[in-house]
Design a protein around this nucleic acid. Structure first.
Length: 715
DNA sequence: GAGCACTGC
């Protein structure tokens, strides 16, 4: 991915090698965190839980694990684990640290993410995603291989981070006492089943009987300025602050609220372009459609400028954009040109774009929300939090002093909430609950979450799981269905569909279906080639519905891939697959992802001993099976031609992208419901002047070389 | 006849 450090040249000479080594040592020494190495190690020694607030550029993620390794925290072959919310981060940081340590990746330093495990028995510093560590906890509930676990980027408060914090808290408690005393973690179901999973877990338990596990050191790292929440959650844990290395960013607010933020965005882009010094501009917008229309407007306006001023290069970036187009934002602008990057919040944390000096922030974000009443998730445009606004403005100060233009008045900033609502409070919980139950947590309402999800949301998800047969009457994991479902890394409904399919002799088809349903959109339709894309998509469509259409796409890909593999290298086969995808307006990244998932869940169901068979042409079996798993998502056509969800009575429509949009079947099942809300405003192209008012800078540390360790207030 | 913030196992 783009934000990675470039790998070292393959044919570097010995002199290069030593020069690089020296350069790395120098860079390490100059990091703010380097001056407090000894004090940090002492803090970890004397506190079992430590909260570290480290600003951007402090070096905490790469350095602390090395300090702890050197201080002997890996004796007895124990591991230091560092979790990240994102895969790219886990990989790129591990690569950097392996290089700093001068070791080969996968030896002392390694990483483990889904589909890609670069660790070995000699790995002592292990970077991973937090979701993966949660999966590990299913197999080893004391996480006994780890002496230290560092949860990085905890302030992002993803669902996985929040669940992990709760689990780690109880693991730590359990490991601090003799093994036969720590029963607090032992909420494993009263053994009413003897599945393979149970006996495995029982086995490792028996081996540990009477032994004392070594205590677990827990370090929570956050970039948010306020560590109080974490500290309170961990019983008044010690919190320290490590200074960062960030250049100052001047913040500007509008003097009055803007009625049309897209118009204001446009004006600001051109004000910067025509009046400010060199440097690229990063604009935060809410979604693809908005980005596309702003792109058009900028280009339109650009044409009206004198030729010598037509030196803007507009580049969009959002997650569903094909990767070769995403990569363009990382290329330097042509000489004499200025880049304007139109981004969703992908540019907030997921990718770091070099060269940004100006940030334009309308203060809005498209966020997931969840209604416990209907059990529906939807995406809604909401104001950002203060923390998010700060994160956005920080993007202008990575390489030098920058400017951030917030398209709202300062008094509006004061009204924003301090931090973003944790994801666990705004999502469907059925997956989380299934996972917690499998980890031995039966009382979900009573579980020690840092922030408890809404009670109604928990109840709604418990209901769903019970209806799917994953829970017993006592709301424990059922055997074998509940255990099987928990073992599959899928949505509970999708997992249930697989289990049913093994009984209906169509598991082959269902494996493909759920793999395809698990990934981002398969079809890609650029606005300028909409008609071509539609024609291409028709080749795959099945009259029997979208699920079978997806199966057709997957099989066509698979066939092509297998054919081009004959007599060719894997790389070549992948290249021709990408070409085929492009011709057929299919997102090759999504297909690759679906193939990975397919491989993994196929292995899972094989290990579970499910019967893998194809239904051949007997699609009725397959459709019956879908209906049996998705029964809560069944909709019936009404006399007036509209549809109504059988389980809730809610009125719904078929999405125009569905192959069933025209055929209007009497009864159908759906995979997802979307709330329709058009938010795009009409944008006009007037050119007027915005009044800007300078306010405080994001950081008043004008010398970014300074480091230091400051103790946070005791809570 | 319309659109999909971002992650993760």
């Amino acid at each position: 991915m783009p934000s990675m450090d470039p790998a070292g040249s393959q044919n570097s000479t010995k002199a290069d090698f030593f020069a690089r080594k020296q350069r790395i040592a120098q860079q390490r020494k100059s990091l703010p965190i380097a001056s407090v190495e000894k004090r940090l190690v002492d803090e970890v020694r004397s506190h079992d839980i430590l909260i570290i607030v480290g600003e951007t550029g402090s070096g905490k993620t790469t350095q602390l694990p090395q300090y702890l390794f050197n201080a002997g925290f890996c004796h007895d072959g124990k591991i230091i684990g560092i979790t990240q919310p994102r895969r790219v981060a886990a990989v790129s940081v591990a690569k950097r640290v392996a290089e700093e340590c001068g070791v080969e990746m996968g030896q002392r330093v390694g990483y483990s993410i889904r589909f890609d495990d670069m660790t070995s028995s000699s790995t002592r510093i292990k970077y991973m995603t937090d979701g993966l560590l949660l999966r590990e906890a299913l197999l080893d509930k004391y996480l006994s291989r780890y002496s230290v676990i560092i949860v990085d980027e905890a302030h992002e408060r993803t669902v996985d981070t929040d669940v992990l914090l709760g689990i780690l808290k109880s693991v730590q408690k359990a490991r601090s006492g003799p093994i036969n005393q720590r029963l607090n973690i032992d909420h494993t179901k009263a053994n009413n089943g003897d599945t393979e999973n149970d006996s495995q877990r029982g086995g490792s338990l028996n081996r540990c009987q009477g032994l004392k596990l070594n205590p677990l050191k827990l370090i929570i790292m956050s970039a948010s300025l306020d560590a109080r929440g974490f500290s309170e959650y961990f019983g008044g844990a010690r919190a320290v602050h490590v200074q960062g290395r960030q250049f100052p960013v001047d913040i500007f607010y509008t003097s009055a609220p803007e009625t049309d933020y897209l118009d204001a965005t446009l004006i600001t882009i051109f004000q910067i372009h025509l009046e400010d010094g060199p440097g690229d501009i990063l604009v935060f917008l809410t979604g693809q459609e908005e980005i596309e229309s702003v792109e058009r407007l900028v280009l339109e306006k650009l044409r009206q400028l004198p030729e010598e001023n037509q030196t803007l290069k507009v580049l969009p970036i959002y997650s569903s954009l094909p990767s070769e187009k995403q990569m363009q934002v990382f290329m330097p602008a042509p000489t004499g040109f200025r880049k304007v990057i139109l981004a969703t919040n992908i540019a907030e944390t997921s990718v770091t774009i070099p060269g940004i000096k100006y940030v334009i922030d309308p203060g809005l974000v498209k966020a997931r929300t969840y209604s416990a009443r209907t059990g529906m998730e939807s995406l809604v445009v909401v104001p950002t939090s203060k923390a998010q606004a700060l994160q956005r403005s920080g993007r202008a100060g990575r390489e030098g002093p920058g400017k951030c233009f917030r398209l709202y008045p300062e008094r509006e900033f004061q009204k924003l909430s301090d931090s973003t609502v944790p994801e666990i409070k705004r999502c469907n919980l059925s997956k989380v609950i299934l996972q917690l139950k499998a980890l031995g947590v039966d009382d979900i309402i009573g579980f020690d979450f840092m922030e408890k999800p809404l009670r109604e949301a928990v109840v709604k998800s418990l209901e769903l799981l019970a209806l799917l047969g994953a829970l017993t009457e006592e709301y424990r994991l059922s055997d074998p269905v509940g255990h099987q479902m928990a073992r599959l890394p899928l949505d509970p409904t999708h997992a249930k569909a697989l289990i049913l399919a093994s009984q209906f002799n169509c598991l082959e088809e269902m494996l493909i279906t759920v793999a395809m349903l698990s990934v981002e959109s398969i079809f890609y339709a650029p606005r300028e080639k909409l008609e071509e894309a539609r024609t291409a998509a028709k080749c795959f469509s099945s009259l029997e519905g979208d699920h079978l259409t997806l199966v057709n796409v997957y099989r066509a890909c698979d066939e092509l891939f297998e054919k081009s593999k004959i007599g060719n290298s894997k790389e070549k086969a992948e290249k021709s697959l990408r070409k085929w995808c492009k011709e057929n307006f299919i997102n090759s990244r999504s297909i690759r992802h679906a193939r990975d998932i397919h491989r993994q869940i196929r292995e899972n169901v094989e290990q579970m001993g499910l019967h893998i068979a194809s239904c051949g042409d007997d699609m009725l079996q397959f459709r019956r099976c879908l209906a049996a798993a998705f029964f809560l998502n069944a909709a019936l056509k009404q006399p007036d031609g509209t549809y109504r969800v059988l389980s809730s009575g809610q009125a719904v429509q078929i999405h125009p992208s569905s192959v069933l949009f025209r055929t209007k079947a009497d009864c159908l099942i759906f995979d997802e419901l979307k709330v329709v809300a058009s938010i795009l405003k009409k944008v006009c192209c007037r050119y007027r002047l915005l009044c800007w008012r300078t306010c405080s800078t994001a950081s008043d540390d004008s010398d970014p070389g300074e480091g230091g360790l400051v103790q946070e207030r005791e809570p």
